[in-house]
C-alpha cells in the first residue's frame, strides 16, 4: 500500500498519525480511501468532490497538478504527501473605517 503523509494540523483527525497506509491505484482512489477511514478529514481536503484549491498532493517531490491530477497512477511503494498552500490577506482598510 502507498503511504500518505498528513500535515500537522490535520493529524487531529487521524488519531495523531503522521503517515497513513492506503490502498488505491490512483491518487484519487487513495484519497477517497483515506477520507473513508478518517471522515473528519474530508471537509478540509475536498469542496464537494474537488480538491480544495489550497490543498496540494505531492508524490515525492512532484505536484500531481503537473502529472495527471487525481487520475495519476500510484504504486504501492509511493509516498504521497498532503501539503497546504499557505495564503492570507488583509481587508482593504478604507472599506472598514470603523475598525479604529
Amino acid at each position: 500500500m502507498a503511504s500518505i503523509r498528513i500535515p500537522t494540523p490535520l493529524r487531529a483527525y487521524t488519531g495523531g498519525a503522521s503517515n497513513i497506509d492506503v490502498s488505491g491505484g490512483t491518487v484519487g482512489e487513495a484519497l477517497m480511501n483515506l477520507v473513508e477511514a478518517h471522515p473528519d478529514l474530508r471537509v478540509h481536503l475536498f469542496n464537494d468532490d474537488e480538491l480544495r484549491s489550497f490543498v496540494n498532493i505531492f508524490i515525492d517531490d512532484e505536484d500531481i497538478r503537473f502529472m495527471q491530477g487525481l487520475d495519476t497512477e500510484i504504486a504501492a511503494s509511493d509516498s504521497l504527501r498532503i501539503i497546504p498552500s499557505i495564503a492570507g490577506g488583509g481587508i482593504i482598510a478604507w472599506r472598514l473605517p470603523e475598525w479604529k
Binding site: 500535515p7 500537522t8 494540523p9 490535520l10 493529524r11 487531529a12 478540509h44 489550497f54 497546504p84 498552500s85 499557505i86 495564503a87 492570507g88 490577506g89 488583509g90 481587508i91 482593504i92 482598510a93 472598514l96 475598525w99
Partner: peptide, 23 residues
C-alpha cells in the same frame, strides 16, 4: 503561521478563512 495586514485590522479576512486549516 503569521502574517501582516498593512493598514488593515488584525482580524482574519474571508480570504484568510478560505485558505485556513483548523488546529
Amino acid at each position: 503561521y503569521y502574517h501582516s495586514h498593512p493598514d488593515s485590522p488584525a482580524v482574519p479576512s474571508e480570504y484568510d478563512r478560505e485558505h485556513a486549516l483548523p488546529n
